[in-house]
Design a protein around this nucleic acid. Sequence first.
DNA 1: ACTAGACAGTTGAACCGTCAAGTGAGTGTG
DNA 2: CACACTCACTTGACGGTTCAACTGTCTAGT
Lengths: 159, 159
Amino acid sequence: MTATEENTDLWLSEGELASWLSVVRLITRLPWAIDTQLQRDADLSMVEYMTMAMLSNEPERTLRMSDLAERTSTSLSRLSHLVKRLESREFVRRESDPADGRFTNAILLPAGLAKLESAAPGHVAYVRRLVVDNISGERLRRLGRDAEQIVQRIDSPAR
Amino acid sequence: MTATEENTDLWLSEGELASWLSVVRLITRLPWAIDTQLQRDADLSMVEYMTMAMLSNEPERTLRMSDLAERTSTSLSRLSHLVKRLESREFVRRESDPADGRFTNAILLPAGLAKLESAAPGHVAYVRRLVVDNISGERLRRLGRDAEQIVQRIDSPAR
DNA sequence: ACTAGACAGTTGAACCGTCAAGTGAGTGTG
DNA sequence: CACACTCACTTGACGGTTCAACTGTCTAGT
């Protein structure tokens, strides 16, 4: 039995494969496209943008490192390196939580907020162009729901 | 005007933002999940897997580097480094096209095919679990179409 | 033929992410 | 109240990706 002859439900049907390959193209090219735009226009990566965006939504512009990691879907290690770089650019600072020294708070600084606000319009326009205004209304809502369902399956154990 | 008060069509509505953030989670976590499974079970990254899978579908198990780059959505530079590593593992070899020395052909070797075939069942099962059998039928088809439409927008010029 | 140019691919340095090991603060148990 | 333990990070080394510069091959114009 060679690789191409087999066609049980262990493999994918032609249609399933085509859809899956489209999804693969999406998950490889969309992050790349967004990163490229942000890098070119604002010298920020998408994770850096998201990180600062999450902080900017907090009343105190502050979040625990572990919360930030959760919300940006990154490892604590990656976030730690990343925040260190943002710190050296004066976009963010860290301080250990006075109430419980195990936690570290990341705090968005004015320069970080300014950077975010200068990057936002171009970023949002590009997201609109590629996704929101391209796949609009009900289709966008369904896309979001499908994405959420896949992400939940990733999180669920049993494998 | 602060960052949180503004709400024109330059920004995203609450619903649009929620859908977009779901998509962001998808495009950050799905590649990570697939990579983790392949790395753990087969010591391959997703790009490496896709690269060899593309080659295995060719009658001569051969493709030009530039074709491979196109099909796997990677830069030529990244592919060149990647193929060099696959070459050192005896999964692939390269030869410059005898007919036109500007082209280089990548050729899947028996060891590469064997690696691919041993990795495939686990990979496919995981893809089924996360996506194909999770979001099945019509929803999968629509997801594929939406993905394709977004990718086409990325490729189209005008920005 | 010679030269300029375009094209395909390679290379090395810098940068980023991952992994495994380590630190340091709080918690719970004898 | 000491000691092991958990939890929240941090760190450094390593490996992969990107970027810009380079090499080598063919093509077109003269």
